[in-house]
Design a protein around this nucleic acid. Sequence first.
DNA 1: CTCTCGATGTTCT
DNA 2: GAACATCGAGAGG
Length: 189
Amino acid sequence: MSVLDRKFYRCDTLQVARALLGKKLVRRINGIELAGMIVETEAYCGEADSACHAHRGRTPRNAVMFGEPGHAYVYFTYGMHYMLNLVTEAKGRPCAVLVRAILPLAGIEEMEARRRRKGAELTNGPAKLCQAFSIDKSLNGWDLTRGEELWVADYKKIPAESIITTSRIGIDYAKKEHRDALWRFLYRF
DNA sequence: CTCTCGATGTTCT
DNA sequence: GAACATCGAGAGG
């Protein structure tokens, strides 16, 4: 299964967010492989996007977004949750795609143990999938093109007509034009 | 199913 | 000191 290379990420963030649907997110931990198909993403498009963490410039937290594409930007929020983002576009452009939901493919029992839950509640939210995959701040800045620990690989070709777009979730603080932008992508099968 | 609300601690003002 | 790219429990329909 081919690991997505740097070139895949060094593209327009909206295109990457769309192209990630149907790809496989893989986490290898202690020799065990957890995997899931990406079914929901959101694009965060740099300093001009008032919903993006980079909107107010570079800080210690968001520094990874300003670096090379193809790295993981993992941050902690609400006092208890981690979120996984994949850095996009050329170095210096602080853009990323938030992975909001995946469909479990492998290592389901491991995910159930970490989540203390079963079925649909396993990975159907950005913090839930981080918990299921044991993704925390130690993976902030991780190079996804290495194909170790955490990466994304080709998996399934998605027809354009089965992709739905909506506005992004949980960004009431942003300007109206960014609140209303259709920058959330869902694979509806 | 829907809605409301509290948890919890890091980050930046 | 306020805000936060969320989740889960509980109440009600």
